[in-house]
Design a binder for these strands. Structure first.
Lengths: 145, 145
DNA sequence: GTGGTTGCAAAATATTTGCACACTC
DNA sequence: GAGTGTGCAAATATTTTGCAACCAC
């Protein structure tokens, strides 16, 4: 499945991100590109391992973080490290700093008038919208130009 | 700070949820009610411990889950158990089943025309919206009436 | 008293780190 | 050859579980 075109594309991406295009990195990147869902590191590890039996889980973790840090992929959720409880019972949404992961509340009125979506997959019943505004908080913005 | 009114309110909530109103449970519930942010179980534990030095972290976990299961509080994020990587690079949002935590992609067009919010806290730069539609998937809907 | 609840300690799960060796340029 | 990246094993972080003692009804 590995085409030269794909390899060169990955090569260019790495150059742009300032990282070395290694074999493991290529396979992990390809694997992610071919999956069209929301895999966990363990999921990715299993698939990569079938093509590259000696790869380690640590390498998968390191490269996933690298890919996320350099913008090649995104995380589905910013809060996977630990459970976070919502103690604000008022209708509201969240501002999330992509750097320090701070969560600030945003009054629902500032994001109002947003209807529940149409065209849902069959059988899914929408109950509630959870809206996160991703960005950079004032502190983190000063940290990096 | 513990008023009789508060205690009775908690008592009623417990009755409604079908759980025993214990002392620990009351203090944990009060602590959550008094915090206005997005604490982790460890955060809650530290605060509860200052009022109830013998409480255990396990009890805090058990009760947080109980509160979430019975609807007294919500989790900020459904995906805290493990990192999940977004492999779909098309603009889209997510349908999340609150029961089985399945994540389905939702085409951005089905949630279009939503502007970045105004009235942000000073210094926060909004870059992107992440919208989760919470609900019940077809499978889980059949599981419970 | 009975059954649910707690605290403790141990286990399970998820992720990170230190370091010697290997690979890329 | 210099510096980055990998694999392994150990460490850390987070959450869950088994079980005896305890509390609410």
């Amino acid at each position: 499945m590995t085409s030269t075109v794909q390899f060169e594309h990955f090569d260019a991406l790495c150059k742009e991100a300032g990282i070395t295009p290694t074999h493991q990195r290529l396979v992990i990147w390809q694997t992610l590109t071919e999956m069209h869902d929301h895999p966990s590191p363990e999921d990715v590890y299993r698939r990569v391992k079938s093509e590259l039996p000696t790869v380690s889980l640590a390498t998968v973790y390191k490269n996933i973080h690298l890919f996320v840090d350099t913008g090649l992929f995104r995380e589905v959720s910013m809060f996977h490290g630990t459970l976070r409880i919502e103690t604000n019972s008022e209708p509201h949404h969240h501002l999330v700093c992509r750097k320090c992961k701070a969560i600030l509340d945003l009054d629902a009125d500032d994001l109002s008038g947003f209807p529940l979506p149409q065209h849902l997959p069959e059988g899914f019943v929408a109950e509630q919208l959870s809206i996160d505004v991703l960005g950079l908080c004032a502190t983190c913005r000063q940290g990096k130009p």
